[in-house]
Write a protein that binds this DNA or RNA. Structure first.
Lengths: 332, 332
DNA sequence: CTGTTAGCGCTTTCAC
DNA sequence: GTGAAAGCGCTAACAG
């Protein structure tokens, strides 16, 4: 159906090698160059990347395994990763794990079988065994945003514990003692932020009763039900820390449906600033991640591995965060 | 590096043909089947989809060309499209046009060169010439969400004009006369919704002064500056229609920064309900699109074309919308 | 600079 | 049910 390099050979009378050389930026006599370019136009020729990849064993494509493509947070990361890759001449093949570990494992194999040159993983799973097919095939991997319990790959993320710890100072310095947390228990960042929260509270000499510890999934539903439960306690907390975008959103939803208002009735601290939170009243204090820096760094690391720098040990890079101030915290 | 079918041949003593047959689900003696399966395990064999695609001329992969991967609206569509494709055994290769027509054209070629079996397009451009490389290569295309001025491809979207028209009744029936619009002028849905707005106003006998017509890009910035300008008019509108997610978000941002409040000072009607808008006070009336139905239909159409149903003329399918009611509209 | 040749890993006739 | 052989479209020596 489509034209091949052979059709160009017919029309120009040149050899396959010459045409291939032209396609790959080699030097060709001006006269022949013209002939080839004309033929390409005439025949609507486009390179068959399958054939090219088969022989070169390179596809100039990086696979992206993302836990959930509907998350605005991951959408921003994908965008920045895509830009960084494009600058280096790489395309990206995105596959959506739909928060499902089985699908994630299947998708990883798919990427390997498609012969991507490297893979950026925003994992669903907490353990790395699902990545073995890539490892066996020597496809470099970099983890982004979330690390693994048995990490043996490069990873770029924020310093979650430190971020939470310094953000909580906003509560503590304003004399809050009864501070609750809503966090995900099913993935890396949720757990890290929860541990960071508990550590900070212990350091401050504050107790966190079990019913102030809301642990669920990385979802709007979890934030919603978590906040609902907290608001229904006889001994309500005066402040709540919400550990990611979806949870913050769900918690705000629940608060909004209640008769309580922030900061009068309850003080709030959220995670993953997205422009839209600025629309809310009150403006919620938010931990903001350096999305572009994370993406750039991840791509840089991956390309280095793809370039053959394979001896160096896996490194874990933890970037710092900023705190967006607001008016969602009352001084007690 | 990776094992090939040849390595399996070595280990099992069988021929390439038999192994290939096994891989493709053909009948093989139980004894041989066992040998092959053992070898696959031992060698960590994974099919090379490049080689397979080269000979079969099929990749079981559908390309997705999306105008902006950071848009939560498109994220939802991608998710549903992905699920529908997966059910049919197809993977998807997503590429991000970053709202850039040039990049879009480049990405389309990339998909064609990668030999995807079909393409779902959420276009940036308004004209279809950038799709010619796919057409020349006989790669079926279906447009989703946005149509093209010179549409010659199947398209699944909502009935934008009708949606706007019926939503505006909420304003009109409450006696609003001074109604403004903020819409994108750079892509299909923005224009359609704008035209729908103007038609509905004309039908209602209402005038729309030029300074009530805010037309910009599909962006938060446009919504923001549009609303800012409207609020600064001496003769302020009593109601504003916001034509998509990003614009609604930006407009709410501007309103929030002002001293005006909805619905007391201004009534609002938005587009593209995303859960988060429920967090807002007031709850904005929202036109809601049937994202899953749109995605399913688009995939169905595409697969039919991929199956060879190529004679039928391109069809334009316009689905209906729902209106999420709220409390952002005051009766005058 | 150009042409010839071999072969990437797989599927697919066609005999057997 | 299995095997031998050809070939998908391209690149990469190597020779000229």
């Amino acid at each position: 159906m489509s034209a091949t390099i052979r059709d160009i050979k017919e029309q120009t009378g040149l050899s396959l090698a010459t045409i291939s050389k032209y396609l790959n930026g080699g030097n060709v006599l001006p006269e022949n160059r013209q002939k080839i370019e004309k033929a390409i136009k005439d025949l609507h020729y486009e390179v068959n990347e399958l054939a090219r990849g088969l022989v070169t064993n390179k596809t100039r494509t990086v696979g992206i395994l993302v836990y959930n493509i509907t998350s605005p947070f991951s959408g921003m990361l994908l965008h920045h990763v895509g830009e960084a890759l494009r600058k280096e001449g790489y395309g990206m093949l995105i596959v959506d794990s739909c928060e499902d570990e089985e699908l994630e494992a299947k998708n990883l194999k798919y990427l390997v079988n498609k012969k991507v040159d490297g893979i950026v993983v925003l994992p669903v799973s907490s353990r790395g065994n699902f990545l073995n097919p890539a490892k066996n095939a020597n496809v470099p991997i970099v983890l982004l945003d979330r690390s693994l319990n048995d990490a043996q790959y490069d990873c770029v993320r924020i310093d979650n514990r430190k971020a939470v710890c310094s953000a909580l100072k906003e509560f503590i310095s304003r004399n809050h003692k009864k501070i609750a947390v809503i966090a995900s228990d099913t993935e890396y960042t949720g757990r890290e932020r929860f541990y960071g929260f508990m550590d900070a509270m212990r350091d401050a000499g504050l107790d966190v009763p079990a019913n102030y510890q809301m642990r669920g999934t990385h979802s709007i539903a979890s934030g919603y039900s978590g906040m609902k439960k907290l608001l229904s306690l006889k001994d309500r907390p005066t402040a709540v820390f919400m550990s990611n975008y979806e949870i913050t959103l769900g918690a705000m939803l629940a608060l909004n449906e209640s008769d309580y208002r922030s900061p009068d009735d309850i003080s709030l601290l959220g995670f993953d600033d997205q422009l839209f939170f600025h629309v809310l009243q009150p403006q919620v204090y938010m931990v903001e991640q350096p999305l572009k820096a994370m993406s750039d760094k991840a791509v840089e690391l991956l390309l280095r591995r793809m370039g053959g720098d394979v001896d160096e040990d896996p490194m874990e890079i933890a970037l710092g965060t900023k705190l967006q101030t607001g008016n969602s915290i009352k001084t007690l």
